[in-house]
């Protein structure tokens, strides 16, 4: 009985908070066509200036932006864009798909099978997000 009342109270509170929010949603589609890697500061003067895709650290920081405000990403990127790298069960490495786009910051360029023996020991943390619970069938070939 107490739990039901608590859930009902929380539901009511959330409904009130939702009704009082009254914000405009982020544009679902970016109003201007964007070509290439954007420097958002060319048009924006608010927090979106940080999303400079040409900055050398954007690749490192995009996970934080996506985890906080993914709607901003989806104004330009469809779901299919994310799964190019963030795949569930993938057999082709992103850089193998895009040998004709060498300028892209895609992981595992070159002969990574050799290099992963070193990188995996120096910083195994970087492996976990993509291979800890997904995309790990190949790992089993050697790591049984």
């Amino acid at each position: 009985m107490k739990n039901t009342a608590l859930i009902a109270f929380l539901g009511l509170m959330l409904s009130v908070l939702y009704a009082c929010a009254n914000t405009n949603s982020i544009a679902r589609v970016h109003p201007e066509e964007v070509k290439g890697l954007p420097r958002c500061a060319e048009c924006h003067t608010d927090q979106w200036t940080a999303l400079n895709h040409q900055a050398q650290d954007f690749y490192l920081k995009h996970k934080f932006y996506a985890a906080q405000q993914r709607a901003a990403c989806t104004t330009c990127h469809k779901e299919s864009f994310c799964v190019e790298c963030h795949a569930h069960k993938e057999e082709i490495k992103p850089n193998d798909k895009y040998k004709d786009r060498p300028e892209l910051s895609l992981p595992h360029r070159g002969d990574y099978l050799s290099r992963h023996r070193v990188d995996g020991r120096i910083n195994p943390v970087s492996c976990l997000k993509c291979h800890g619970r997904q995309n790990n069938e190949r790992c089993k070939t050697c790591h049984r």
Binding site: R133, N136, C139, H143, R144
Partner: peptide, 30 residues
């Protein structure tokens, strides 16, 4: 553009439950 990073990781807690033996704490690699 100048960027500075800081990261601190405790393996015992970070690799707590993975489905990959290569990243498991019980396989002798980590």
């Amino acid at each position: 553009n100048v960027s500075a990073t800081f990261q601190q990781v405790n393996y015992e807690d970070y690799f707590y439950h993975v489905t990959t033996s290569a990243l498991s704490l019980t396989n002798g690699i980590l």
